[in-house]
Design a protein around this nucleic acid. Sequence first.
DNA 1: GGTGTTTGCCTAAATTTCAGATACTTATGA
DNA 2: TCATAAGTATCTGAAATTTAGGCAAACACC
Lengths: 185, 185
Amino acid sequence: MANFTKKAIKESFVKLLNEKPLSKISVKDIVEECGINRNSFYYHFQDIPALLEEIITEQAEELINSYPEIDSLEKGMEVATDFAIKNKMAVYHIYNSVNRDMYEQYTMRLCRHVVTRYLEVAFKDADVSQDDKDVAIRLISSSLFGLIYDWLNSGMNEERPADIKRVCELCKGIPELIIERSHNN
Amino acid sequence: MANFTKKAIKESFVKLLNEKPLSKISVKDIVEECGINRNSFYYHFQDIPALLEEIITEQAEELINSYPEIDSLEKGMEVATDFAIKNKMAVYHIYNSVNRDMYEQYTMRLCRHVVTRYLEVAFKDADVSQDDKDVAIRLISSSLFGLIYDWLNSGMNEERPADIKRVCELCKGIPELIIERSHNN
DNA sequence: GGTGTTTGCCTAAATTTCAGATACTTATGA
DNA sequence: TCATAAGTATCTGAAATTTAGGCAAACACC
């Protein structure tokens, strides 16, 4: 089924989110914005946090799918921060409220995704165990996530997270490091 | 009720109308474009001409409502031609097909509307019978409609109907003419 | 503490959408 | 020219969605 109502609810919610903070948006506001019955809202969503979660999940999925290949770490970082930028107003309101965990979870997932994609290229043809690859993924994605985490907490004042270039440069050395160590064993 | 499906059908149809001529648009195309069941189309509309009629009616209504006051004949003419311009692609395909009559009817209605609004100002405080006013409305709106009619038939090549300024200038003298004649009786 | 608003939930009814089947017309091509 | 494919317009009956209206509890504000 097509279900345009659900779509309309999401659109109305995003529209309201650009007008006022999450804490001031009521279910009533949403249903009045898109001209539906209040029960129709509850038919589709448990509550506002559930609506929020679905929107953020969707946007993250979409962003992930739109970059099937990541050929540089900088590009990966760009994708991950794009997620926050795209939802800037929402992030601003959400970040210190209900769904902080959820939001971080998706940002982390995005970081992991882009790093995995990047390392697929970096480790291509290299004789390295999956375990070693996993360590690299965890290490690099964690540090990228850390950058974004700080950036969000500082209010996203700079256009991009600080030190992004230097950290990326450093991280690029890691695959080589692992390949080397792998050969010495 | 909100009914986003009906809205989606209209949007899909307009989208298709900008891609290919009316004659090549099937109900199947429309329902596939907006991802609904074929029967849902027939639930809302009798057939494609009915859909077309509803869209054109809506646009005409909307245009009329967006100009509650017409203070010059040129402005009125602008409103009436806007209707055609706004629907240019649609008009292009429709004009020589099924709904020619309907389209002309709405254009005529728009002309009549804007002229009536304009004359409300022109005849303000003037001691003229309703009959005389009606004659003026019929005369002026018919000639404006004639301009648009020719413009449509010639393919809307110029941005606006030809001779629009001179005809408007001429028409402006008519209220005075009627007021004068009315006093001599 | 009183007042008004919002939430989350309920039921029952109405509306809308669906899949599947049918008879009919119109193109299209072998 | 026949058939066969595609589109139209309808009809069922079932399923999904939306609605109105009401209720108790939580909440916000004065």
